[in-house]
Amino acid sequence: MSEQPDRLESELRAMLSVDPSPDLQARIRVRAFSTPPKRTPWLAWASGLAAAAAVVVIAVNRGPTIPEVRPNPPVIAETREIPQPVAATKTPTRFQPSLKSPKEPGKVKPNAVLVPAQTASATLPAAEIKLQALKVLDVTNWIQPIPQTPFSIAGFQEIKIEPPILTVPNLE
């Protein structure tokens, strides 16, 4: 009973006592050392600290340096582009409701330049204001042809209806 395990053990030992080639160790060395080992984390830390120390040493050894004098750049008061006044086709009062529109708050056309009514006279040139005032009054419509009444009675003086003389206030 115990003979067979002993025999089996000896057989196994004989079967497994195989020696490798004599040059195996040399081949292992070549194969293993052909790939560099992984650096340990502390080695990475040490490398990083050494690099930082080197930078500090270089900075200290160089000493103070005279800064290069450069001409000051022109001071820009406003970087934002000031919008040019747009020739308004309507009266400035037209824009007033759109600024405080309760129905569509904040909805403004992207390219529109909103000029409040109070500041319109300050931004628009005087000649433009005059022209706009004339357009509002539309004086040309006031000049009407004199009606030729067929029922004019002789002896009566013909009445001419003169258009009212309008004076444009001098806003300058």
Partner: peptide, 22 residues
């Protein structure tokens, strides 16, 4: 198989050397 066993041994040591420092 001797050759295969030697190949495996080489690879095992190469793998071990990569992480040997850790």
């Amino acid at each position: 198989n001797r050759e295969d066993a030697e190949d495996v041994t080489q690879e095992a040591f190469a793998k071990a050397y990569k992480s040997f420092s850790s």
